[in-house]
Design a protein around this nucleic acid. Structure first.
Lengths: 234, 234
DNA sequence: CATTTTTGTTAACATTAGGTTAAATGGTAA
DNA sequence: TTACCATTTAACCTAATGTTAACAAAAATG
């Protein structure tokens, strides 16, 4: 069983605590990269793919929440776990809003941490198979590169897509010819499902339709009350 | 805003705490079914589909863990959140082993609970996409795709169905050649059984008959006072 | 067979979702 | 700071959906 270890990005400014935690995780067969502050954390994050991020909330220069937001912008899927000394209510709320997967109060039981990590990885495992590494799509006569965020028609000059345009089109492409539920896009991209985010999404659908106009075989259909459907007619 | 609320099964033996929590959740647009002990909880679970289970750990007769195990046997997907008075380490570990999605210590902040619920639901929303239910039916020379809500005759241009048309035809198809009781459609689709919903349903039956006219072998028969029957003659 | 109940059908009406454009907001870099 | 860009919010309009009323027809009832 040749199995690659899961990779964890640990961002923790306390050198003692950070080192202990890192060693403990490594003893349990995780590959751990330890960054000493938010800035360094983001640099390391950009350089590699991680299966999990463990972020200290209180850090100089760049706190855990800000870092989490940046990470989410680049990759909306990585599980994120926050570490806090004191579990203040506002913190917890803020964390969940940024898309936290779990919360840990320092000092915590290391065995509990391992269980949580395991549980989170399991959760993500199922999703990851389907949509993790998919960045390039052919959409009729278009090419979408959702990593570089551009859309090219007939191999011509690429149009640059904004992050939201890109994510939305990517979700549609993942569900090509099938229903892409409204709710899915709202929770995945907007992380909230209310009247305004919903209207915002409609605005983006309009933008995408405009981009896709050159190929009249490609269209985004609405399924009233359910969501949208990217169809390629042939 | 015709949106179906998420359904929560709350199993909590403390009547005061349970009632307060239930009311709070209902105020926040969740449908809550409250069971007073593990046994009752499992009965209620079997009778309906839930989007989330909130289980008290300490309960007479059947504790939360045992209940969770039973629930997992029937349905491995429902998110489960445990409530504990004291967060003993063994409990937490046991919980994660049974497949807990989260943990809450009593007393907890209600706002935090809401955020956690939201986060968990969001997580599940993505996985849920792929659950391949029964969406496609052949009805004589028609194809019904009840996910995309369309009906196609002889592989031609699909007719779009409204949600109610779609649900009704789907129910009829599920009972092909058999009685589909009025009451069933009314409770399942209209969620209410009175004079007006009943008349509304008749209106929809008329619409479906019109759609199905092209295939004269397909008809919707009425069984007076009982319901309808979708028959395919051959 | 007269009467009541249930069903069939059509159309008017009300409500909600979605399409589109433009202006307001907010963040970021020059 | 200004200028720019992505995104949200607002506004207005159209399409889609669902409910109700009204009346006709069919089925059950005694």
């Amino acid at each position: 069983m040749e199995e690659v270890n899961k990779k964890i990005l640990l961002v923790e400014d306390d050198p003692n605590f950070g080192t202990v935690l890192k060693d403990y995780l490594m003893m349990n067969d995780y590959d751990v990269v330890h960054a000493k502050n938010g800035m360094e954390g983001f640099e390391k994050f950009k350089k590699d793919d991680y299966d999990l991020c463990i972020l200290d909330v209180m850090m100089p220069y760049k706190d855990g929440f800000t870092l989490a937001k940046e990470i989410r912008e680049k990759n909306s899927d990585v599980p994120i776990v926050f570490l806090t000394a004191k579990a203040m209510k506002e913190d917890v709320l803020k964390g969940y809003k940024v898309g936290a997967d779990d919360y840990l109060n320092k000092p915590f039981d290391s065995e509990v941490l391992l269980m949580k990590i395991k549980a989170i990885m399991q959760r993500k495992a199922t999703e990851t198979i389907s949509d993790s590494k998919q960045f390039e799509f052919k959409i009729g006569r278009f090419d979408l590169n959702s990593k570089l965020r551009f859309l090219r028609f007939d191999g011509g000059e690429p149009i640059k897509l904004s992050p939201k345009e890109n994510e939305l089109l990517r979700l549609l492409a993942l569900h090509e010819n099938d229903l892409m539920p409204r709710e899915l896009a709202l929770t995945k991209i907007w992380r909230d499902d209310n009247y305004f985010t919903s209207r915002s999404m409609d605005v983006y659908i309009a933008k995408l339709r405009k981009y896709l106009k050159p190929d009249e075989k490609v269209e985004i259909l609405n399924i009233h009350g359910e969501g949208f459907r990217l169809v390629i007619n042939d």
